[in-house]
Each structure stands twice: as structure tokens, then as C-alpha cells.
């Protein structure tokens, strides 16, 4: 079984974000693999462990994306490809999806393409469904459990508002994985060594066989959210009952219930 897992590099979730001279800054916080993508790598690895086969990590980004790729390799992916094209700076989700879909075709397709649920930087969460649409494959997004997978079919549970939807889809298929799937493994010492030595081929957009897609969505301005004026009031009292009664009155006064 051939599986491609798409990974992205993002600022660590603990980063305090700011805007300096119109540019997004994450200070000295490290860039890491998108936390959701670790679940995608885990799912891809478990599928090949059960079925046999290889996992290829695919990323689109600049030099920085190599850390995400190394992490995926250290977890156990057998090879990786980086699409690194300066012309993709400022690309929107559909442009990214078009390049990823082209790269997947260029790799020779796959039985399964796996994504994380969304990236924690842009929070768009549409890349998996767009790539599925471009490839013409079924999209099985928000997978919380893979019940069964054979060479021709996958059975999975999807996390939706109302609970879990159980589906069966023909391969090839695009999946996105949510945290319920199960904890991602830590890279092993051997894995880290292997990843450090791995050579990662770099492709331009032209190498994927398509013309550069133009960005349709642009973001003319990024800003810090308005400071919230919060008047802090500490509720005190001589015993918990008194504090609770005071707090209950204050909550009622806010008229939010």
C-alpha cells in the first residue's frame, strides 16, 4: 500500500503571535510540524504497518518546512518530497491544493492521501477536501477511527456535530485525521538519526507538471485582535457559600443567561 501524508510547518502553539510592520511574527518560538499532522503521520504509519507498504511525506513550503519533514521521517515515513517554490509565497488554499494534487499525481498517485484536520496557523481546514475534489477521489475527512482497511476499501468513523458517521469508501481516498484517532508516536532515536541523514528532493511547481496557480484569496491586512477592556473583580467572602452567592448575583447582573 502506498500512502502519502501531507505535512506543514507552523509556529509552535505556545507562540505569542504579533504583527510587526504588517508582518506576522512568532517571536523566538520554534517552528514545528503542524500538531494535527502528527496524527495524520501516525494514521499513515499504522495503516502501512497493518497492510505493508510505504509512507511518503509531502510538504509545500520553504527551507523551514524541512523541520516538519524531518519530524515525519523521524516518526517513520520512508521518504519525503518538498515542493519549494518562491512563487508560492502568498498562495491561498486552492493554489496549495492544486500544487499538492499535482505533486501527488507526479509521485504516481497513492492508495491513500492523509492530512491533519487543519493547520493551526491559517485555520482554514479546506485543503483535504479540495485535494480530494481535484483528484476526483472520495474525501473521508475528520476521521476519528479507522475500523478496517483493505487494498480496495476503507471503513472509518468521522467526527461530526451530531456524533460519528460511519462510512465505507473505495480506494484511492483522501483522509483527514482528528485527535480522537490516537496519540502520535514519538520519533525514535534511530528515526531521528535516519531523518537527519535523509536527502529530501525539492521540486518547483513546474516540476509537478502544472502552471503556477494564482492566489484567488488575499489577505491585505493582519492585525492583533482589539484589546479587550475587562474590569477584573475578585469576589471574596468569609465562606464558600457567601462567595458563591455573591458570584451568582454578579453573573445574573451580566444578563447573559
Amino acid at each position: 500500500m502506498k500512502i502519502i501524508v501531507c505535512v506543514k510547518q507552523v509556529p509552535d502553539s505556545a507562540a505569542a503571535m504579533s504583527v510587526e510592520d504588517g508582518k506576522i511574527s512568532w517571536g523566538d518560538a520554534p517552528l514545528v510540524i503542524n500538531p494535527w499532522d502528527e496524527y495524520a503521520v501516525e494514521a499513515a504509519l499504522r495503516l502501512t504497518e497493518a497492510q505493508g507498504g510505504d509512507v511518503i511525506a509531502l510538504s509545500l513550503g520553504d527551507e523551514n518546512a524541512k523541520e516538519a519533514i524531518k519530524h515525519a521521517l523521524a516518526m517513520g515515513c520512508s521518504e519525503a518530497i518538498l515542493v519549494n517554490d518562491p512563487a508560492m509565497a502568498g498562495a491561498d488554499t486552492q493554489a496549495v491544493a492544486r500544487v499538492l494534487a499535482a505533486a501527488i499525481q507526479k509521485i504516481g498517485g497513492a492508495d491513500i492521501v492523509v492530512f491533519g484536520k487543519q493547520a493551526i496557523d491559517s485555520d482554514v481546514g479546506a485543503t483535504p477536501s479540495m485535494v480530494a475534489r481535484l483528484l476526483g477521489w472520495p474525501a473521508v475527512t475528520l476521521v476519528s477511527e479507522i475500523v478496517e482497511c483493505t487494498q480496495s476499501e476503507i471503513k472509518a468513523s468521522r467526527a461530526m456535530e451530531e456524533g460519528r458517521q460511519q462510512v465505507a469508501a473505495e480506494l484511492p481516498v483522501v483522509l483527514s485525521i482528528v485527535k480522537d484517532y490516537g496519540e502520535p508516536r514519538y520519533p525514535s532515536f534511530m528515526g531521528i538519526r535516519k531523518a537527519a541523514r535523509a536527502s529530501v528532493p525539492e521540486w518547483t511547481v513546474a516540476d509537478t507538471g502544472i502552471d503556477l496557480p494564482s492566489a484567488v484569496v488575499t489577505w491585505p491586512n493582519v492585525m492583533a485582535p482589539p484589546e479587550r477592556e475587562v474590569t477584573n473583580e475578585i469576589i471574596e467572602g468569609s465562606n464558600p457559600e457567601e462567595i458563591a452567592a455573591k458570584l451568582a448575583d454578579k453573573i445574573m447582573e451580566e444578563k447573559v443567561l
Partner: peptide
């Protein structure tokens, strides 16, 4: 964006 740590103005051309 960034779970609300920042806000982004966006347009679709």
C-alpha cells in the same frame, strides 16, 4: 487566524 491570536482581513478576487 492562529486560533484568534491574530485577525486577518481577507478578500476573494
Amino acid at each position: 487566524v492562529y486560533a484568534g491570536k491574530l485577525l486577518s482581513e481577507v478578500v476573494c478576487n
